[in-house]
Design a protein around this nucleic acid. Sequence first.
DNA 1: GCAAAAGTGTTTTCATTACACCCATGT
DNA 2: ACATGGGTGTAATGAAAACACTTTTGC
Lengths: 230, 230
Amino acid sequence: MPFQKENTDTTFFSVDNIIFGFDGDVLKVLLIKRREEPFAGYWALPGDRVSIDENLDTAAIRVLEELTGVKDVYLDQVFTFGKVDRHPSGRVITIAYYSLVNIEKVDIEAASFAEKVEWKEVREIESLAFDHFEIMVTCLDRLKQDIKLRPIGFELLPEKFTLTELQKLYEAILEQDLDKRNFRKKIISMNILNTLHELQTGVSHRPAKLYSFDAVKYEEVKENGFIFEL
Amino acid sequence: MPFQKENTDTTFFSVDNIIFGFDGDVLKVLLIKRREEPFAGYWALPGDRVSIDENLDTAAIRVLEELTGVKDVYLDQVFTFGKVDRHPSGRVITIAYYSLVNIEKVDIEAASFAEKVEWKEVREIESLAFDHFEIMVTCLDRLKQDIKLRPIGFELLPEKFTLTELQKLYEAILEQDLDKRNFRKKIISMNILNTLHELQTGVSHRPAKLYSFDAVKYEEVKENGFIFEL
DNA sequence: GCAAAAGTGTTTTCATTACACCCATGT
DNA sequence: ACATGGGTGTAATGAAAACACTTTTGC
């Protein structure tokens, strides 16, 4: 991350993008291992300076795309971190975003400023460069809230998924077990899923039905006063 | 607001503080009438540049205090607005905060850059300078959410208040009527209020009991797993 | 035929809603 | 005595929670 030639009279600003993925079991986040000082060798959140003619959202999308090759993902601004001393080489204010991506679609290319790029299990991360750990925790809290109130969990799954996969995703993010029957009853009764007449393959047990999220149906029921809540 | 001598290579950043107050009847917000260009003569949200050695929260508190003389108020960061063209005289990214103040304690002193400072009824505001209307709407939405999930309504009332006052406050913010008995039952059952053995005075009807919010009790019940929700 | 996950309804429990009359005070 | 808001309880409704067995497939 290029903050080398600092001008001590100037405030810089950046975006950091917390990219969440789900591997069917645990929630992961995409981290980069920094090649350069400060914090060389530390894991950090992907981010970059925002250029003067670039919108904030655009910068966050750019960071994501440069790192993963993925476009058109769910993205949300969370919080702006600007403590005077948060960056050792000058005043840097950073606007934190989170993204939700289908982990299978991501093709990781180590960025020039990174030694490595890796998916890390969220619950096992203990520290990060700068104040990135705090940023990650804030974004994770926000994700926990958002996922109960908006139909965004689907962004982390393949287009076709089983209800058990969806449930496991919710359990991983919310860190609590959910009742299978109640979960299914509720999500089905929302009328925002398509039942594909297609079954899971390659499993050594009864194959599950596949579903997909139907954004059009969701808009319809929303018109009629439906409020997503899980 | 001093953005006169702009350097087109530099990005500036500011905080804007949406200061909410309640007059017993409607929700209000403190606006300033701009003396200088751009948008001279327009109503705007109070805000200022953040200096290089100043934390964001500190800047928001400073803006509030310079304008109202009030300290120690509830303050929350909401969202950062940074569209490239949001400010006509350069790139200015602004971090929006909202504050809740007891309207009676505020002593308005017009700031140097303002022609006037006034409390305006939130629901009657139709436009503001820059993108301030959008900022205000975003903050208002956030306040609506927050007030249901955190015991912050009290910040807008005098220390001693009646339950009807509290209910009217909720009704004004949420824009919906609430049932008197249910509201009282719920708020009383939370055990976060002190019943003062004191009555309202100067009213030409049965005087109401006065209550105060008890932060210590709130922390206690929160320890025991209580979650504020209204 | 056994292991493994899919799929399916009913009852209980609890929180929310709806609702109307008497009370205390000032004028 | 009247106008004004203060103060109070119960029944009905609906949503959430708890709970266990049969089914389908691969090996």
